[in-house]
Every structure is written in C-alpha cells, then in structure tokens.
Design a protein around this nucleic acid. Structure first.
Lengths: 411, 411
DNA sequence: ACAGTTTAAATCACGGCTTGAATTAAGGCG
DNA sequence: CGCCTTAATTCAAGCCGTGATTTAAACTGT
C-alpha cells in the first residue's frame, strides 16, 4: 500500500499548523516573521495560520520586541494553559501519575507503591484510574481539558490496530490488553508505550538529547535497554520492540543472562549482574544503595575497581555497537544505574567506545550523561499525547466515540 | 527546523502522482478503480492524475479486464520505454556499467577489470564516463532519455549538500569527492551510494526482501555489512554510515579485525577471516574458489566442519543482534560468501539466532537466503535514480544547471 | 434493435489552501 | 508632519481534491 500521509488541501493546513505549533513549542517565543523564515511559509500563510491558532486559543502573545525604526515584532508562544496532559509510570515498585500543563509543568502528582511487583493487573489498572481522578481533582481542572493520557510500562508494547498489548516479563505480564482495560476507566485518548522509550523521549525533548536528530538513549538499570531516535522519530521496528540493546551479544557463549541467552550486554553491565558478581556486596541493602556502595568502594578496593573497569569496557563496546549500527550523532547514557556510575565511568567508557567503533562514525558521535532521573518516565509519558496533539496541528481527537487506545506517535 | 515535506497544492499533486506511479510500478498492471481503492484517492482524482500521467507518457494501457456485465476495466502500467537508467558498480576488481529501461530490463552492459584494486581514482572516473558513453551507444538510445546515473561504491558515502564524498578503505580512497569528479563527465543527475546499500535495495525491490517493510539485508563477503530498511525506507544515520554490522563486537577483547578493533563479527565470519583460519586452505587459489573448497571439504573434514559450525554460531548471534536491535520482519542473508555458504549453514544459523534473540522479536523475524548475486550491485545502483523519479511523481530533474551529485533518496 | 441494468470512468461545481503583490500598521528620525 | 523602514494583513489568482452527476461500455432480456 502506498504511504498516504497528505492528500487534500485540509491536510496542508493541518501540516502547516503542526509545523508552526512545533516550532513555537520547541523554539518559542518567536515573531511571525521568524516563523515564516524558519518554516519557509509565506508571510500571508503565516498570518492566516497563526490567526487561526490564536482564534483557537492555542497561541498567545508573549511580548513585543524592541524596534530599530520599523514596526515592532510581536512575539508568540504556545498557550501553556490551553490544555492538560497526564503521564503515568507503571513500574515494578510503583504506579506514578502526574498532571501537566502544555509546558509540561507538573501541576499535581500521585504515587502508589506496589507490594507484589506489579503482577496484579487489575490492581494496577485501578491505581491508574484512581490516580487520574486524584490528580485532576488536586489540580482543580476540568477533566475535559485533558488532551490525553500517556502510560509508560516496563515491557514491550505491541500497537495493535485497536488496542495496545503489553508483554512485560519483569512484572509477569504476558499479552495484557492494557489499552482495553484502561479504557473502562476513562474516555480520554490513551497512549501506551515502553517506559524506556518515554524516558528516552523526555531526554530528547528537554534532557541531554535535545536538538539531536539521530540519537540513542542508552539506559542502564537493573536491566539494560535503549531508545533509538532516527531523523527525529523513534525507531520502532516491525512489532515495536526495537532497541533491545541489553540483549546484544558481547561474548558468544558467555555469561548466562536472565533472558536465557548467553553473553548478553545486560549480563555484564546491568546493575543486577554487577551486584551478583561483586564479592564485597553488602547484605540486606537495596539495589540502588548497594550499587552506590560499589561505586564508592571502587576508590579504595581493587576488586571493586576491577569490576567497574571491566564494566566500562563492556559498556564501551556495547556503545560502539550502537555507533556502528545506528550512526547516531549523540549517545545519552541514562537510567538510574547509568546516572549513578556515569560520572566515574564515562572517561573509560569513551576510551573503550573509541577503540571498538569505526573511526568515521565514531568521530561524529558524542557520548553524554543523561540529565533526567527515573521520575522522568512520568513526564516522558505525558509527551506522548502532546506529540500527537502537536502532530495533528492542535486539533485534538474527541474524547468520545473511541473504544481503543490510540496508536502511539512520537516527536 | 520543522520538517517541510509538503506545503502547497502543487505538492499534493506531486505526492499523488508519486503514490500512483509507485503503486503501478510495484503492483501493476492495475485499473483506475483498483488504484483508487488501494490509494484512497477519489475516482475523480484518480481520473485526473492518471490522465496527466498518460498525457506525459509515463503511463500506458496494458490491456482490458473481462467484464461481467458492466463497463470493462482498462489496465494501466508504467511505460517501460519512457526513459532509461544507468547503474554503475565501482568495485575492487572491476567497474561495471549497465543501461536499463524503466522495468530495469538490462539493455546494455560493459565491464572493465581493474589491475590496481581501484586505487587510481582518475582511472575509475574515466572508466565510468567511458562506460556511460558505451552503453548509451550500444543500446542506441538518446542520452537525453536517461533519467539518472546511480553509482555503487565499496565504502562509506557522505552525502554533503553539494557533493558526495567517498571513504573507501578497501580501495584506498579517503574523502574522494566522487560527485564532483564524475560531474566533469556528464550532465546527468548522479546518485552515489554504498554498494552494499544498492545491493540491499535490489534484494528489497525484486529479491528476497520484496514486500517487507522492516528488513535487514545481511551481506557476507570478504567483509561483512548490512543494509537496514525501516518502514520501507533505508536507515542511514547521521552521516549515512549506519549498518556497519560487521564491526559489532561478538567477543570483547577477541580476534583482531582488519578495522583495528578486537572481536568484530567480520573477524569471525568474513570470508577473508575464514580462509585465514582454515589450516587446509589451498595455496594460490582465488578467494571464492577457496571458500567453495572449504564448504565442500566440510562434508568430510572435521576441522573444516568445526570451522563452519563456529561460523554459524557467530553468524546466528550476529543476526540475533539485528533482531534485538532493529526488530525486522525479515533478515536476508546475501553477499557472495553468504550465498555460497548459506545453503549449508542456514539451518544452524537459524538455530543459533533463536538461542541468542529475545523470543518476541525472534518469533516475528524470518531468516532467508538472498536471491541476487553480486552483479545486482549494478541494477541496484540503477534503482537510485528510479526511486528518485518515482518519489518526485515522474517529474525528472533537469539535467542542466546542476553542479553536484544529487542527494540520494531510496524507495 | 432497443431498453434497462450494471459497472467504470470522466466531468463539473465547489470549497479550501497557499502564494505574491498590494495595502495597512507601527515604529524612528529630521 | 512627512518620509522611511520594517512587520503584518488583505486580496486576487491559481491549483487541487472531493462528491455528485453525467457519460461510456458492457451484458441481458424482450
């Protein structure tokens, strides 16, 4: 089937509304003249489209630029109060629900700890629905102003034509029709996506990935994964499971990984694996605290230092794989373990990556530390409905008449 | 900068011309009614656009379907004789130039062997220009009917804004401004691309990849590389060097690769590496013949069999990396060594890939043998101008007034 | 041979959109 | 206040796709 993205003059207006909205959102405040120069639209078109966006309440004045003798420019911005967004982080240990305005300023947040690792699907679904009601009430907004709900989950999300189905091994979910289940609790548009991908999108929008077109967000936690962005768009693959970097082979026939294969990157650099192999691991300590202890001990303990040196080499080689295969301009190292170990390991990781990557792509790729912690899964999930809204030119889908989770679209 | 792909009603017509042309090209012959059904265009629009394409000579009648009592459907197809395409394969051992019609039927071909491994850039450029003249004369066509020249080269091609620059280590080329050099010999639009990528495109268009949207063409020769296709488009990366699969790490600190790094897949499964490690390698035999001998000897020689078993495991793990990272629906194993060893190794490769790949993406990916030999680099190169032509809706760029190689666009 | 029915394709009126040119708006300066 | 400069708006024109209508081309029955 041919690709049918634009075909009538109405699509033209929608495309140009989207282009102006996105440009204002990421680069604003801007004048109409700058919008025209940057987007290539004629002055008349900018005037027409901006006029419509202002009439719709999506765009507002943001001040006046000083004049050197001609007519002064009026600055414009996206109206932060036009609508609201909800972001949900469904994790192994908690369900976190946040309400944001269009600037992604957090207006309310609620969090529930899970005692069973998230295995009880119905319980999680109930917590999401309750959290949605709670943040809406806390912020004192009308539910009708919510443009959509983005949900990040710790597994693979298959985007079916009428529902999102989640496979999340770490919380024991197998083909859970989460879209349909959440639909029972709300009429708002739903956008369900892998949590690593929502965290990756957050880094791309306002973290270390900002401004890059081809990037990889490499996430190290207990497990290891990546979010690949190609030409500004997320790389999904045939069934949306692309980016399983943690299960690429670093040593054929090597250490057994919890996924079942041998020699996976995760079996060498995942926090769980590190702590398993560390003979000085303190007993009874949580994973994060234990890894912090390992990092601290590496300063004066040879075994801990050697373990982290080996980790840096494997990480560097794994990053070199990303460089050689994806040819990104930027690699962002994130995840709770990545942020914890990053400051100490990054120089050695860069050295190792330079050794294993081809010279030409390696020269073009910077390796940087992420800027956002794991709480950013929530705001990253809120970017899902926002991206959709911006892509549609600010014409949100109707909350009524929809019986399924929305197909997820990214920035 | 916002993505500005369509903005005026002229772009609408261009997009719809492109959609109809591509659909007719890949799926034709078809009636107007089928075109409308498949593309979603209204009957009136199909009538208008097809009428224009017929008037322009791009589309012609291809027969009439039988009628059951209503008006019979008229079948349409792209006019094979509308224009011509040239495909060039610049390799280590030869320069091959072919002239094709729009159906990619070969009308003439010429080939020159290289005695210096392609190191003399000026000599290669002269051979290309001479070959172009030669095939044009042999086929007895007007040069003005040639829509463009596609060139496949054995290295990384950086697509600059006004020229293609080639880095091809195997033929000793470092930052060769091939676009500018070839420009001196012809006014035709030039499209320069990595030969593995043109071969990959050929497999996608009329080989084992046909019909797939997310695929990887994995090429095994002396070296190892891949051509990644995402959502029907080639995955390029920031500087067009994506797909260097042969230099992903299979064993941290392992065998030294000719690229300088340790543990690369190429150091384990590339033909050059295999022959280097085979103690029974016959002296004075060419690479292809020697590999054929290895394959044949594996039937009754334990060492040869063990070497190929190890190769299958590394190949399977390398393919599993592609599955886990790119989530393709299809992996095509090609390249001269891949085609030679494929029939014998494919069962073991599939077994190994299933062991190393995650279950969910692994279940969705088929692993198949390529259908085209290395001569397909030439016809694959011819698909570059053709893809551009189809993408532009059949409005070819003017040959005059262009001082640089064209930015390459793929199917 | 003709009328009626069916299916395919062409034609037409209409509305929407962007563009470039012309006009209006809003400063600064003498 | 007039002139100049720069920003924004308005207007006429052309292009495009759509849905409704008309025309075209077959088949069947009388």
């Amino acid at each position: 089937m041919p690709d049918r993205t634009q075909r009538t003059v109405r699509d033209l207006r929608r495309g140009n509304r989207s282009a102006l909205l996105r440009h204002l959102y990421f680069e604003g405040p801007l004048s109409r003249l700058e919008l025209g120069r940057d987007t290539g639209l004629s002055a008349g078109s900018v005037s027409n489209v901006v006029g419509e966006l202002i009439a719709d309440g999506l765009v507002e004045r943001a001040g006046v630029a000083d004049s050197d003798g001609g007519r002064p420019r009026i600055l414009l911005k996206v109206a932060a109060g036009y609508g609201h967004l909800v972001g949900v982080d469904v994790g192994e240990t908690r369900v976190r629900v946040g309400l944001f305005d269009l600037d992604l300023t957090e207006l309310a947040v609620t969090e529930h700890l899970l005692s069973d690792g998230g295995r009880d699907v119905d319980h999680v679904v109930r917590l999401v629905a309750d959290g949605l009601r709670s943040v809406t009430a806390d912020a004192g907004i009308e539910p009708a102003t919510v443009l959509g709900v983005g949900v990040g989950v710790p597994g693979i999300v298959e985007q079916g034509w009428d529902s999102a189905v989640v496979h999340a091994q770490t919380i024991g979910w197998d083909a859970v029709p989460l879209g349909r289940l959440l639909r029972a609790g709300t009429r708002l548009p739903l956008y369900i996506e892998n949590g690593a991908k929502t965290l990756g999108q957050a880094e791309m929008w306002f973290g270390a990935g900002r401004g890059a077109r081809d990037a990889v967000i490499a996430l190290i936690g207990s497990g290891v994964g990546a979010c690949v962005v190609a030409d500004g768009k997320p790389y999904r693959g045939a069934t949306s499971s692309a980016g399983e970097w943690g299960h690429t082979t670093m040593r054929v026939g090597g250490r057994r990984c919890r996924c079942g294969a041998r020699g996976c990157l995760e079996a060498y650099v995942g926090a769980a694996s590190l702590l398993q192999r560390w003979r000085g691991a303190p007993a009874g300590m949580g994973e994060e605290a234990a890894l912090a202890a390992l990092s601290e001990r590496a300063g004066h303990d040879q075994e801990a230092a050697a373990l982290l040196d080996e980790t840096a080499e494997y990480l560097g080689a794994g990053i070199a794989d990303l460089v050689n295969l994806f040819n990104p301009e930027r690699i962002v190292l994130g995840g709770w373990a990545g942020l914890l170990l990053g400051p100490r390991l990054l120089p050695a990781v860069r050295t190792a990556a330079a050794e294993y990557a081809l010279r030409q792509p390696g020269r073009h790729a910077s390796i940087e530390l992420g800027q956002l912690g794991t709480d950013a899964v929530t705001v990253g999930a809120a970017t899902l409905p926002l991206a959709h809204f911006l892509d549609s030119g600010g014409r949100a889908p109707s909350a009524a008449g929809n019986s399924a989770a929305r197909t997820v679209r990214w920035a």
